[in-house]
Design a protein around this nucleic acid. Structure first.
Lengths: 317, 317
DNA sequence: CACAGCTCCGCTCATATGAGCAGACAGGTT
DNA sequence: AACCTGTCTGCTCATATGAGCGGAGCTGTG
């Protein structure tokens, strides 16, 4: 990367050749011909030009998606999809808007008529569906119960219904909370016709968008909605992230517990069977949660913002 | 140049491929293999990436030589050499120092033991020789008489002697002014043994560094040293530049005149026979002079600074 | 002077690549 | 349905390219 060439004339020659090759797109043979050099010499000068840093290649584009970072994130974690939005915004609501837009575009692009779409409840997912403008005609399946929080008006049901309407496909939705006080109630709820029908479609889902929370106060809607005992119990079991009701530890292994039975949502096995599972995490507090979710293999698509992406890649400066 | 790709996933894919290709240097076949695409698809995505501006290729390097500009200048004017120094400096003396350094490096690089070096008198040439630290063993021939100006202590003779000493080769130098009041005196001077000997070596010169002035007050040392009548006469004949005593018009044609006979210097024909003739112009006032000098074919190497280079290329912004 | 060690050059030959073509498909139009 | 029309795909085949080799020239050293 360092050994820079000899004299200035040499450098200018190299620069000329580099431009002919990279900018004008001429072949090395043509260049060799023009400069009265052997094509080998030209090739060597070009190698030198690149290795010495004389020719710099940048990947960027006008939009607010950092393609280079996206590609690197995708590769580094073996993801099917990664979209990194480069925005100075750090106010959560505005950020969600941006990420929602990007995720909506992604969904529009990757969902085809052969898919079955699963949607979990999460603010970020709502942000996405709010920005959705077109979608192939697919069935839309509700993957989790809803948590109604005072600060969020939309609920899981609206989210699914809205998307299905936009798509033109059938909706499989139900009215139930994400978490209930005991396993018995949960079992009873799962017996309900609408719930049972939706659950029955889980196996058919090919693409899903889920919520992703870090198992800490304020970092997971589910955590905040659950009783302290349950939260603590899960933490002791090593849970660092919840993926729309599926708990995973730092190694990415799903954690089974009594609490799991109280959750009305897709389970780890079912989620694992889905071809593409996309999450939309943001905020530096979710670094470990994202790592865990990705390690688990349950989540293989990420839409996020550049600070979190950089943190994930350990490029913290 | 404009049609950017479709969806964000597509973009990220393209970015990934672009990085594999341009940054990691993988072959398209390998990439196609890795991404489960045909090599044609990969090639098309890469074409698209380049034409849409997603991949940007820059040519630059740490030094203060603007290689890209140099290469473009060289090509645009069909020059053998072009070195453009990118410096914020615009104070003439400091600028001369920078250009002198660049020119000295160039000379060191391109002069080989087979060459015969010719040096004209000019402040810029002195600036170069002052920065010269090593040179192949070559004869050094004085190409012009000296103009002694009160503000410049070095004269043509010192310049040649110093260079020859550094090189280790013989010096052919003489003591005579560049311009004398009448042709008779000039003829007499040319008969002098040292002068005649130097002139006798003009035909052997293979590389030369000359001065280049715009035919205006303050833009040419020769102009300033000459009587007003002669200056005016030459201007009427269309002279726009003097190349160390050779006058050329805007078309680059050498202008013969009575004044020419009063100059003790290499003539147009002899200069034309020299393989490489390098000038070191600076200052935006010399744009037309440089054009004329280059058009004449007498000067085929330029060492200059970026503002003048840009002006020459009509990139004035 | 001979020689090892070095760099630089251009060759061969297997491989990568581009130009241009024809089939497959989608969406609209008669 | 039949028919354009444009887009996208992967093919063939000629050409461009890279890896590795041996020879030429240069330099310092015994």
């Amino acid at each position: 990367m360092e050994p820079i060439a000899g004299g200035p004339a040499q450098l200018v020659l190299t620069a000329s050749i580099a431009r002919r090759y990279y900018v004008d797109g001429r072949s090395k043979v043509e260049i060799a011909d023009e400069f009265r050099l052997s094509r080998f010499k030209v090739a060597r000068l070009l190698d030198q030009a690149r290795s010495s840093g004389l020719v710099r290649i940048e990947i960027s584009h006008p939009g607010n998606v950092d393609l280079d970072l996206s590609a690197r994130l995708q590769e580094a974690f073996g993801l099917r999809r990664a979209i990194v939005v480069d925005t100075p915004e750090d106010e959560p609501a505005a950020l969600r808007l941006q990420l929602g837009k990007a995720a909506a575009e992604l969904l529009t692009e990757i969902v085809t008529a052969d898919d079955v779409l699963g949607l979990a409840w999460a603010r970020a997912v709502t942000a996405m569906t709010d920005q959705l403008t077109s979608l192939a005609r697919v069935p839309v399946v509700q993957l989790t119960g809803a948590l109604s929080r005072p600060d969020v008006e939309a609920n899981s049901v609206e989210l699914v219904r809205h998307t299905a309407r936009l798509s033109g496909g059938p909706a499989y939705l139900f009215y139930a909370p994400l978490v209930v006080p005991d396993a018995t109630t949960a079992r009873a709820l799962r017996q309900q016709p609408e719930v049972a029908e939706a659950i029955g479609h889980f196996d058919a889902v090919t693409k899903a968008v889920v919520g992703l929370g870090s198992w800490d106060a304020g970092q997971s809607t589910l955590y905040d909605a659950m009783d302290t005992d349950a939260c603590e119990q899960l933490r002791k079991r090593g849970v660092v992230a919840d993926i729309s009701g599926v708990f995973v530890d730092a190694k990415g292994a799903p954690v089974q517990s009594k609490v799991t039975e109280r959750v009305i949502a897709i389970n780890a096995e079912q989620m694992n069977a889905i071809d593409e599972v996309i999450a939309i995490p943001y905020g530096l507090g979710k670094v470990e949660a994202v790592r865990a979710a990705v390690r688990s293999g349950l989540v293989n698509g990420i839409v996020t913002h550049s600070p979190l992406a950089r943190a994930l890649l350990d490029e913290v400066p």
